Computed example of a mutant assay.
Amino acid sequence: MRIFGRARHRPSTDWRLATDRAFTLIGDGRYEDAGALLTRAADLEPWLSESWFNLALLHKFRHDWEQARTAGLRAVALLDRATGAPDWWNVGIAATALQDWPLARRAWQAYGLRVPVTASDTAGTSEPRGMELGGAAVRLSPEGEAEVVWGRRLDPARIEIQSIPLPSSGRRWGEVVLHDGVPHGERTLTAGGTLSAYPVFDEIELWAPSPVPTWVVLLEAATEDDRDALERLAADAGYAAEDWSSSVRLLCRSCSESRMPSDEGDGTVRQDPHDHSAPGQPGPLGHMSPGGPGQPWVPERECGLAAPAGLVRGLLDGWVADSPDTREWRDLEEVC
């Protein structure tokens, strides 16, 4: 854990010892003990913005958003620079978690980001929109069986999931997750000869659930075009299908948190986490990915579907009806 040095005066030895010990305890997951030490540090040096920044950080780890907001506001009140301080980013995350939109806007603007104001919200009381932050990846359950999926950034602290997560994640397509501000890793895509890098953020918690269930189904798709037809059919209906047989690869944590291309793997089966390639840029599932780049197409595909119960069978039947000689499905199961 890095403690940002922005103090106007050198903190006392007792403050530094208490703070260093607190961050050691945080690393061990002992948040209660760390909280007592950071509270003592704040009592020792209440004029230091770091005292309150560190408390805000601890409350963020604990998902105690009211306390994170309070400590964060104490920290920014003591800052000696106008923009760019990480204190404001933590305030923005806490405000977003609490849906305190005026404060969230103020935090992003104070950090140095442009937050458009819509004609219908000149007072800035609704959630910030139109920041045009683009796509990114998010690591679900970063402390567990982590899974990296693709999504659309709604603002600096939220991503809407656009991949179909595996059932082990407990997450669904279309859910919105709150994420941390510092990326851990990148995914790169090449389109039109241009290489683009996308950050991978760590999920903090679920912000908005999705009512759309996740299904797994086994397909017989004679060609890639047959597989693609199901994905288009689901998308046209406002939902999603994803060929997990080619879009999921297994990476060790070190690889996942580094810069990884999304259209090729390193040919090694690793333990975790699951890593979804971007739509149209399939990556291998471990070492023996059926139909991966440079490999022959395998008709049997394991596919994830995100669609309501009343629609999912109709989608699959309609897909088969369009080309009954080259398409079949079986073993449909709701998994999340």
Rank of each mutant, 00 (worst) to 15 (best):
A237T: 10
E203P: 00
L206R: 13
F23E: 06
E127D: 04
L166A: 11
V335C: 12
A221N: 04
A97Q: 01
D43G: 14
S12T: 15
G283V: 15
G112C: 01
V176N: 00
S196D: 05
G35N: 12
D33W: 03
Q281T: 11
A7Q: 03
R6M: 07
D243P: 07
W150G: 13
R139I: 06
L73S: 02
E203R: 00
W52S: 08
A241I: 14
R152Q: 02
V148A: 12
A136S: 10
R301F: 10
P199C: 03
S254D: 11
L58A: 11
F23P: 08
Q109M: 07
L189W: 10
G181Q: 15
P86N: 06
N54D: 08
S51I: 11
P296F: 12
S289G: 15
T268N: 03
T326K: 02
E160C: 09
V115R: 08
P156D: 11
R16M: 06
E333D: 15
G134P: 00
R81M: 03
V312G: 06
H274N: 09
A34N: 01
T125L: 10
G185D: 06
E50A: 15
S126D: 09
L206H: 06
L311P: 03
R313H: 07
W244P: 00
G292K: 02
E205P: 03
D275W: 14
G92P: 04
D14G: 09
P261S: 04
E132N: 11
P213F: 12
L48D: 12
S210M: 06
L44R: 14
L133H: 10
R227G: 07
L140N: 06
A71N: 04
A241D: 05
A75E: 00
T268H: 07
P11V: 15
W173I: 02
D225Y: 04
V248E: 00
L189R: 14
R62P: 02
L251C: 06
G314H: 15
R30P: 01
P128L: 01
R253Y: 08
A68Y: 04
L189M: 10
G84M: 05
S12E: 08
L44V: 15
E160K: 14
P299W: 13
S12K: 12
R171K: 07
D33Q: 13
G310F: 05
R259E: 12
P46C: 05
A107D: 01
G151Y: 04
S49H: 15
T24Y: 03
V269A: 11
L251N: 02
D322F: 01
I164F: 05
